[in-house]
Design a protein around this nucleic acid. Sequence first.
DNA 1: CGACTCCTTGACAGCGTTCAACAGTAGTGG
DNA 2: CCACTACTGTTGAACGCTGTCAAGGAGTCG
Lengths: 228, 228
Amino acid sequence: MFIQVSANEIAAKHVSGQLNELARQRALWRKVKYREGSEIFGEAEPADYVYQVRQGAVRTYKRLCDGRRQIGAFHLPGDIFGVEDGEVHRFRAEAIVDTNLWIAKRRSLFARLAKGDIPAANHVRVLVTRTLEHAENHLVLLGCQNSLEKIAAFLLELDRRLEQPDVMVLPMRRCDIADYLGTTVETVSRALSSLQKERILSLVGTNHRGIMLHDRSKLADRVCPSPS
Amino acid sequence: MFIQVSANEIAAKHVSGQLNELARQRALWRKVKYREGSEIFGEAEPADYVYQVRQGAVRTYKRLCDGRRQIGAFHLPGDIFGVEDGEVHRFRAEAIVDTNLWIAKRRSLFARLAKGDIPAANHVRVLVTRTLEHAENHLVLLGCQNSLEKIAAFLLELDRRLEQPDVMVLPMRRCDIADYLGTTVETVSRALSSLQKERILSLVGTNHRGIMLHDRSKLADRVCPSPS
DNA sequence: CGACTCCTTGACAGCGTTCAACAGTAGTGG
DNA sequence: CCACTACTGTTGAACGCTGTCAAGGAGTCG
């Protein structure tokens, strides 16, 4: 759901043992490239494949009839997405930047489930559960947090997943962040500027896609941890 | 996630075949009663049991350190909840009113998974997937909808699940609705009053817990459907 | 009856959205 | 090389939705 930018290729450490096992059987997987902005699968489309990001980044989202959009997750190198229990996808998936994926026929995977392939079944359950856990935390963020807290939580999560790089380079635009956090580009921009004024971070590079965190503990103070 | 109020006992039609199969094996299940407001399980507590609502209603939620609360779901008669893939619960569960549950030892269920009980594994996957699907729709509601749309969506979902009763009686308080929708009691109250002024619904009964929908299509106009 | 809880309503302020203008960069073509 | 366009992000100003605070009504319970 977050970005791997410090390295373009996925790092083995980011793939759990179980996922590794699932992905290791390369006979199942096929390589596919998607250009920036192109659709990987649509909402209510048949869920015929399972995807793993190798390079680049993916956003999954739902859209309301009047154009409003809610991004459910960002998928980064190593992440597996598109695993559904039903016949169709409930989200639309697009490449945020030029992206390389591995895709696997879903039927071949589910055929193994039907045959009683317990490890395969467990893998699917783990993947779905991980997705659920992320969605649950996202609910709290959308329902309880104000705009500064949302941005802080977003940055900290990103920072954690990238293992605190010196500079994290966001592959997504401000409007993607806004639609992920349930706010607007202007609010995202103002929050980042505000944090920069407080010397908590620096915005660097083209379009300020790069972010340097100077004071992670101050940033953490801005977001309320989940346990009561 | 919504309330069964027209009948106190669960109706068979509300339990899918698969869930029925899981629940039918009563040898596994034990009956437990919870008083209004009492805790069924806590956040980060060991997930030793699986629960099915027989009578009453349950809320599951997370709380931030300063007291803010996000209700993830309401569980009604027939609903199974507390199924986790990990060792601990990620939500806290409380009885909204006096509630009767059936509980099953989780280990006995997961023992069957480990032994290669494919139907049992599928049941768990279906349950988790159903929870995920609800959470995904909830994300859109929290991230994209304004207060009137949230209330309208809430009411319509409730109405659908109750199969359009003449009067639906909410087991939850306004503050529960507010924390479910990411808003406040006052906003919930104002939205309901506003819809009543427009003759779309009537509030009846003690504490206005009863709601009669007069014009479901007008109410549906208030909420934007998900497909683009 | 009094105390309590829950809900509603009003007044007001503030956060965040909306609208608008502008800066910086990349890409294109003369 | 520069002009032009397109795109992204930033910032300012004004508005409005929603949160906050406060008061009061209605029902419940001891």
